[in-house]
Design a protein around this nucleic acid. Structure first.
Lengths: 158, 158
DNA sequence: TGCTTGCCTGGAGTGCACTCCAAGGTCTTA
DNA sequence: TAAGACCTTGGAGTGCACTCCAGGCAAGCA
């Protein structure tokens, strides 16, 4: 069932906005900058620098430019991609599947159908997950109200 | 590589119904039976027998009766508890926290306030998670419609 | 020139939640 | 009575997603 468990660590993956379309052009940020160090990107995304390097190593980051000294220089497009990956991560999709998706993106436009199928399958998972969580919420509410009723001190009459 | 491994094992944790209240009495199943072997419970819950033993070992199963030969005999109350644990698991709550909750239950009624606080915190997590997933859904839908538009063959005009 | 800070790499380590194993005891059916 | 399915235990192993480490390079500043 793939119980997710994202949680912890101030995640700000979504900060790069809703765009996150690997086929779109890298639109510049307000300050016009389009070069970010790994620690800047770590700050933007909430991912650690380690994790960003690891993402690149396993093929989840398509390709990151380098400075003349070999240091990574992330672009706005990279940030958009990371934001999208963050969303996929929230769905509970395994990293291996995200890598598969990234490979399809790299292969070009003829993989549109496959990509779409993956996303539609993910969409179903998300819908199911939301339903599960809402069901769980009902049970939690029931239990919480039981506890609330059982506590003699009505410090908060719900 | 690419180990696609989504959603295995038919989970039927919720089969015990919405009850799942550790303070309630063990209401009998329609067949009047109240003794289940570990493999039966594994079948009911979708958890493996290994996992059920492990749950007991770490203190997540309060106490399971034994037959005269030492084999586990799960009761309806155990099933209810497992159903509730399954719900907590769906929320992404770590097993360690669930063990803490189980310990509070074992300690008796004077831990009601703490238990309630835990559940309320979990409730908040669930609400946040649902919001995240709904946000993700929006993005998935946007992307899927992009792909749908890009595919020349309109075999399914959405 | 030396110090600090930030970055690089491959590989090893971590934490979680199981999952399996070996070796043996028990139950059920023929 | 015997075969085979099912159960027991503690401890080791697995897979995932990071997370850290050692050793080293490069830039900026006093």
């Amino acid at each position: 069932m793939t119980v997710v468990q994202v949680a912890k660590s101030s995640r700000r993956v979504g900060s790069a906005g809703v765009a996150a379309c690997e086929a779109e052009d890298g639109h510049l940020r307000p300050d016009g900058q389009d070069q970010y160090t790994i620690s800047e990107v770590a700050g933007f995304t909430g991912l650690s620098a380690h994790t960003l390097r690891w993402y690149e190593r396993i093929g989840l980051m398509p390709h990151v430019d380098r400075s003349h000294t070999g240091q990574r220089r992330f672009s706005n497009r990279d940030l958009d991609w990371l934001a999208f990956v963050g969303k996929l991560r929230l769905t509970g999709m395994p990293v291996a599947d995200m890598v598969t998706y990234a490979e399809l993106v790299r292969e070009g436009d003829h993989t549109f159908a496959q990509r779409r199928a993956m996303l539609e399958s993910t969409r179903c998972d998300v819908l199911q997950r939301i339903a599960e969580l809402q069901d769980t919420l009902t049970i939690l509410d029931h239990k919480i109200s039981t506890y609330a009723g059982a506590q003699c001190a009505p410090e908060r009459t719900a």
